[in-house]
Every structure is written in structure tokens, then in C-alpha cells.
Nucleic acid binder design. Structure first.
Lengths: 188, 188
DNA sequence: CAGATTGATTGCAGATTCTGAAATCACCGT
DNA sequence: ACGGTGATTTCAGAATCTGCAATCAATCTG
């Protein structure tokens, strides 16, 4: 639609990652990001709620997708299996963007502000899963606790996926983490 | 310690809670909080890293206390029991401040900014527990997963404690939540 | 007791984040 | 050609947060 070159969000994200990598998160201003992308500061805020959000593109859509996948999972599946299936369903997209994910992770690790936002996203993922599990008929407190631990297992799996020198798939590491979870839970 | 009236942090916290309750979080400025406490905006920032932090007094000390208690727990205790004991150890302090905790919770529930900070604190608690469990000899990934689920159970117990019309103790609700956790985990 | 020290508070300047409202711009259908 | 549409821009401004120097009163020191 528009005479403006498309991919505005993408250009802003790329500019942001470049600048954050060059000078660090705090030392780059939103105005600088926008300028590098050939846009203005105000346009940045038309696309992202705040400065941090530029590093979490599509997270809300991802969470919504997980919610729907869990809700729509076959009834006979156990809660954990339903969530694991939802996680692995679109995981090859991440496999195709492994390198970008690694760069992003370095940035998150280096700045407390960004880690705080990430933890909020993880918590939001957990709450979304909890809602979906309740919709499947799992009552509280099981829904809340199961959802929290699934979100934790997802974090664990993603961390191992990024750290794996063999470059195994995300789906593989997610399955392994859920297996570890079951093993660990038996000791509780 | 000084000619200035003591309890500066406490006065700022009370002023903040009052104003947040009256007009909401976004609609009160740091300058207003400081003025109501008889201080200046700059002094507020001498005591709190940012505007949100005024609603999380002593959280870092609390987390440090849990870390130490878990680390120092008797070796024969299971990880879950060690964490539960750490949680319940100082929980009567909260019982004595139940009403304040409820007011605080209402504020957190009403403002996404504040919930984000809370989730970050919960995550920090989880990471502290994970470190303590590793120090006790529990290897990863069990340490990470156990710590996450303990933090989740703590949240659950605290929520029930605040919602309980019978006003049962926090320790009681924490034990109940850990019991629910074990029960739920058996179904995984 | 005068003087130095200390620690908390203050004043001020300024960069930066984020918002609201109105204006601009070019594509698109009619 | 003309108006609608959606994205971008411009502008003004409030609020957050930081750095630095100054102030102030209590306490320590000789």
C-alpha cells in the first residue's frame, strides 16, 4: 500500500540491532535508530510501544499462536504434550533464524532493561498457556503451575538450542527439556 | 545519622502508595511523591533507582535472604523442602503486613508497568534459588527447573494468602501450594 | 571549642523517552 | 481530476532519570 518503501518495522529492527551492538543499548537513542532507518523518531513510536519493544518483534503474535495451538490440541493429549506440540509446531522458523536469535540473545544478556522485558514476555507466555489449559478443562491450580513450568522449560530449551555447538533443532532441544522436566518432577 | 527526620524511604513509599491509589500510577509524578513526603524529586532518586522501584522496598534483601536460607538448609532436605522452609521462615512478617500487601497488590494489578517489574522480581527470585540449589549440589537442569517452579508456587501461595477471606497465614498457603505442586507434578 | 569530616539533601542543567494533535504526502479507486 | 486512505512527519511538551556542585547539620578530632 504505500509509496514508502515497505518493511519499515524490519528496517527499524535491523538499525536498532546494529546500533545496540555497536554502542550498547543505553548509548543509542531512538532518534539515532530512526535516522539510520531513514525515518523519524516519531515513526519509531508508531511501530513500537517503546524502545525495548524493538527487540521483541512478533512476540505477541507468537504467544497468541501458542495459546491457540494449545486450545485446539486434541483432547486426549496431556497438558504437557499439548504445550510441547504447540511449541514445536512452528519451531523451524526459529531454526532458520538461529544466527539472528544468537545476536539478539547477546544483547538481552548485556542489558538488564532488556532482560526485564524478556522476563515479562516469558510470564505473559505462561499466563497465555494457563488460560488455554483452563479452556481445555484443566482446573487451577494445576493450570497455573503447569503453564509456569512449561514456560520455564521453553526458556531452557531455547537456551540450549542457542548454546548447542552441534546446532540441533529447536524442536529437539524443546523435547529434551520437557523430558528433563518430567524426570526432575519425579524427584519432587 | 542526621538531623533530617529518619525514615525517608518509608515516607516516600507511603506518599507514593497514597498518590498512586488516589490518581493512579501514570497520573502521579515523582515530583509529587517527593513533595508529599516533604522532600525533593532528586532525593527520591537517591533512594530508588526508578519510579517503579518505590513499590518494591526490600525485595532485593528478601531475595538475598531466601538465597542464604536455601544455601544453609540441612543437606538431607530435598530441594523443594529446603526452598519451602526458606519461604516460610520469615513469612510471619508478611502476616503482620497483610493489609499493606493487599493495597500494594491492587496497584500492581492495575498497572502493566508495575506488573512487569514484579515479574522481573519473581524471575530474579527464581534465579537466586537456582544458584542456591546448585551450590547445594543439585545439577542443572534440575536446579533451574526446580527453582522456576518454586518461584511459581510462591506466587501462587502469596496470591491465595491475599485472597483468603479466612485470613490464614502465608506459611499455611505456601505449604498448601507446594502440596498442590507435588500433586500436579505427579500427573506430568 | 574551632575546624575538618561525613552523609544526606538540594538545586540546576540537560539528555532522553514517550505522547497528543495536526499537517503532509503519495497511492488508490472512482 | 478528486477525494479517501494510511503511513509518515512536524511540533510542542510533559515526565523520567542522571551528573555535578553546593548546602546543611551532626559528628568526629585535636
Amino acid at each position: 500500500m504505500g509509496r514508502w518503501p515497505g518493511g519499515t518495522q524490519e528496517r527499524l529492527q535491523e538499525a536498532a540491532i546494529e546500533l545496540f551492538t555497536e554502542r550498547g543499548y543505553e548509548r543509542t537513542t531512538v532518534a539515532e535508530i530512526a535516522t539510520r532507518a531513514g525515518l523519524t523518531e516519531r515513526t519509531f513510536y508508531n511501530h513500537f510501544a517503546d524502545k525495548r519493544e524493538v527487540l521483541f518483534p512478533g512476540q505477541d503474535a507468537f504467544i497468541a499462536g501458542i495459546r491457540e495451538a494449545v486450545t485446539a490440541a486434541p483432547e486426549e493429549k496431556s497438558p504437557l504434550d499439548a504445550v510441547l506440540a504447540a511449541f514445536t509446531a512452528g519451531s523451524d522458523w526459529f531454526d532458520r533464524h538461529r544466527e539472528a536469535a544468537q545476536r539478539r540473545r547477546q544483547l538481552l544478556d548485556a542489558h538488564a532493561d532488556l532482560r526485564e522485558r524478556e522476563r515479562a514476555k516469558v510470564a505473559a507466555l505462561g499466563e497465555a498457556i494457563a488460560g488455554a489449559l483452563r479452556a481445555r478443562g484443566l482446573p487451577d491450580p494445576a493450570a497455573t503451575l503447569t503453564a509456569s513450568v512449561c514456560a520455564a522449560a521453553h526458556q531452557l530449551g531455547a537456551a540450549r538450542w542457542l548454546a548447542d555447538p552441534e546446532e540441533g533443532t529447536l524442536a529437539h532441544h524443546l523435547r529434551a527439556s520437557f523430558e528433563d522436566l518430567r524426570r526432575t518432577a519425579r524427584t519432587w
